[in-house]
Every structure is written in structure tokens, then in C-alpha cells.
Computed example of a mutant assay.
Amino acid sequence: MIKRIGIYVAIAAAWGLVYAAKEHFGIPDVWVWIGLIAMIGALTSFNFESRLQEVEARVVRKDYAGIIEQLEGQRHKPQQKQPNSLAAGGAIVSWIRPEHEVLFEDFRWFAAVLNQHLPDPWAIEELPRTDARGYEGPEIGRMYEVWYNACKVGRMQVTVGSGLLLRQDKSEDERAARVELTLNYLRFIPYQDARALLYELHLMIGPFDFNDAVSSRSRAGALAADELGGHLWECVRNSDFDPIFDFLVDGRYDLLRHQVEHWKKHNIDPMAKWGGDRDRVTE
């Protein structure tokens, strides 16, 4: 009400100034009315555009209200549904090669490793499927759902990487994995949590120099920040919709293998001990 009274007072004051200028300079009435009509049209247009933006903002917020409620809800406790074998998960048996079997074994605790290191809202849950998606047809690997609190925000899959593959004539050190991640609703997830997920994936999958861990960690952090910056740019450039975030990292997964070997050495099975979820006690 006070705001409306202020608007009326401002209009009256403006009209008084216009009338005084008309009398002082001898401006014809027709020009005064033309100017008044133009001013009213400009104010009406500005008010209409402001109201329209408010309505659009409310509509967008309303459309995502349920999603935001889930994102801010209770954390989802992952239920690991690991396949017993590649064939049991649906992989085409005739397509299975030795490097697929090695990758399947190396990544059996991948979800547990991520759940141990990620911030509290995240949960990685393995699916019982091994028929991953490829560019030219079906692929073979492990598949996961990605949760942020009570909201299922995406999918992730691990397949044989594009680097040197493990074959019968190669050493075990010449192996590579390709991790592909697709996320929805990233714009509603806090930056630090989003960066933490990408950081851990780069850290676990990319090359890791155990003699210079600081540089490896800095590199992972820089790559994660750069990818989020690119996604933010696309969100601003195409602000009418919420773009899907696609992420890919391809590497020899040195740090993941190191963590798995550490657990094996100490007879720790994270799936049996913690259900593949997190436990903040350092082992």
C-alpha cells in the first residue's frame, strides 16, 4: 500500500514539473499530451516486463520445487546390487575379453571407495547390470546410480579405457578405464559438493604420481573446476533450460588400485564391512 501511494505521489510531482515547464517555455498542449502518453507507455511496458519475469521465475521454481525438496532431504543409503559376473549382468558372452574381466575385478569396490571419500550428500549405488552403453553399440562394464541426498541425479558407467588395454601379451600395469557420468539438476547442487565428485573421479581414475601427490591432487582439482566453469557458461548462455552435465575421464586408475590393494592387504571387504557405504573411521 505504501509503495502504491509513493508511486501516485511521484506521478503527481512529475505532472507538476511538466505543467510548470509547459507554462514557462510555452509548450503547446499537444506536445505535452504526446510526451505524457509516451511516458505512460514506457512505464506500462516496464511494469509488464517486470511482472512477466517474476511469473517466469515462480514457474521455474515451482517446476523444480519437488526436485529441490529431494536434494535437500535425507541422504539415500546405497543398496549395492553387484552382479556376480559379467555374463550374469547381461553382457554378451561372446564379446567378453580378458581386459573386461580384469576391469570388472579391479572395480568391484569402486562404489565403496567413492562413498568413503565423497561429501555426505552423495551416494554411489552399483546396479546389477554390465551391459553398458557405447558409441557404436553395447559396451561391457560396471554401472551405477548417483544420488544426492534423496534425489537420484544421474548415472555412471565404467568400461575399458582407450589407452593401452590389458591383453595376454601385456603387463598388468598397462590397463585403462573409461568413466562416464551424466548428471541432472547440477545447478541446484552446491559448488563444493559438485567439485568434490569430479575431483574424486579425476583423482581415482587419472594418473597419480605417488612421489608428488600434491601435484596430482592439484591437477584433479583444476580439471574439476574447469569442467564446472564450462557447464556454468552453458547454463548462462542457455538460461531457458537446465542442461544435462556430461563428464568423462579416461586413465589408468592408479589411486583406485592402490586403495583396493590396501584393503586386500588388511583383509577388509568394504561391501561386507560397510555395505559398500561410507565409514568415517580411517582404516
Rank of each mutant, 00 (worst) to 15 (best):
N84Q: 15
N84D: 15
S85G: 00
S85I: 00
L86G: 02
G90E: 01
P98Y: 00
E99M: 11
H100Q: 02
H100D: 03
V102F: 12
L103N: 06
E105L: 12
F107G: 07
A111D: 14
D120V: 14
A123L: 00
E125Q: 13
R129S: 13
T130S: 03
R133V: 15
G134R: 07
G134E: 12
E136I: 11
P138L: 07
P138W: 02
E139F: 01
G141M: 04
M143T: 14
Y144A: 09
Y144I: 08
Y148A: 09
C151I: 03
V153L: 07
V153Q: 07
S162F: 14
G163C: 03
L164T: 11
L164Q: 09
L166R: 15
L166P: 04
L166M: 13
Q168M: 08
Q168W: 09
D169T: 11
K170W: 06
E172Y: 11
D173H: 13
E174L: 04
E174V: 05
R175V: 10
A176E: 01
A177V: 09
R178I: 10
V179C: 05
V179P: 01
E180P: 05
L181S: 09
N184Y: 12
L186E: 00
D193T: 10
A194D: 03
L198C: 12
L198F: 11
Y199V: 07
Y199I: 07
E200V: 09
L201D: 10
H202W: 03
L203D: 05
I205R: 06
I205C: 08
I205K: 04
F210Q: 01
N211L: 08
